[in-house]
């Protein structure tokens, strides 16, 4: 009898990357479950069906974030959202969303391995972000639980402000090392 049990080890493109020394700490938020959700909240049942599964309505104000229990839901577009779940929680939530939605016009897609999340922590986050992104990160225009999709230098990013000082930046897997390198260099240049 052949043993068919495989030991699947999780890997990240950021494994082995060295964190910078300076006013911002960088750390990967590992293996967050991620679901892309699409549907029409302006007519039909989609909005209320999703609400019954998530525990609240998806955010309809552009570029905002809501939290329901251990779920974080990002506005990506007027008919598109991103849901972060705890590690491993995406499969069950996808099943429940699809079961509840049935034939309702919608799309529920597992994008957990498509993106990685980098946590930026520290008082210089806004200045570091401004080195590669043209968005206005001043507190008067960028506040907690606001998010924005933009580009940081050449990398497509989703930036989420956590509190008064800290940010999470989500980037595609293949751009993760590039973004980490750029952020780390910006942090160290500012500290120098």
């Amino acid at each position: 009898m052949v043993n068919t049990t495989f030991d699947v080890s999780k890997i990240s493109p950021l494994d082995g990357m060295v964190p910078p020394v300076g006013g911002v700490s960088l750390r990967e938020k590992s293996y967050v479950g991620k679901i892309n959700l699409r549907g029409n909240v302006e007519s039909g049942d989609f909005g209320h069906i999703v609400e019954s599964v998530l525990g609240g309505f998806v955010p309809t104000t552009p570029n905002t974030v809501v939290h329901y229990g251990d779920l974080t839901i990002f506005w990506l577009g007027p008919d598109e959202w991103l849901i972060h779940t705890p590690e491993g929680g995406q499969g069950d939530l996808i099943d429940r969303l699809r079961a509840a939605l049935g034939d309702t016009h919608s799309a529920v897609t597992d994008v957990s391995d498509y993106f990685v999340v980098i946590e930026m922590r520290g008082t210089d986050c806004r200045d570091v972000l401004a080195r590669g992104c043209s968005l206005d990160f001043h507190p008067r225009s960028f506040v907690a639980d606001q998010c924005a999709q933009s580009h940081f230098s050449h990398a497509n990013v989703l930036i989420h402000q956590i509190n008064d000082t800290d940010f999470d930046v989500q980037v595609r897997w293949t751009y993760a090392q590039y973004l980490w390198g750029f952020l780390a260099e910006a942090v160290e240049n500012m500290a120098a």
Partner: peptide, 17 residues
């Protein structure tokens, strides 16, 4: 810098469009 106003996101840099 040329800015364009997305009807949803507001004023953004031309390079995003």
């Amino acid at each position: 810098m040329l800015t364009i106003k997305c009807p949803w996101c507001g004023d953004r840099d031309l390079t995003e469009f």
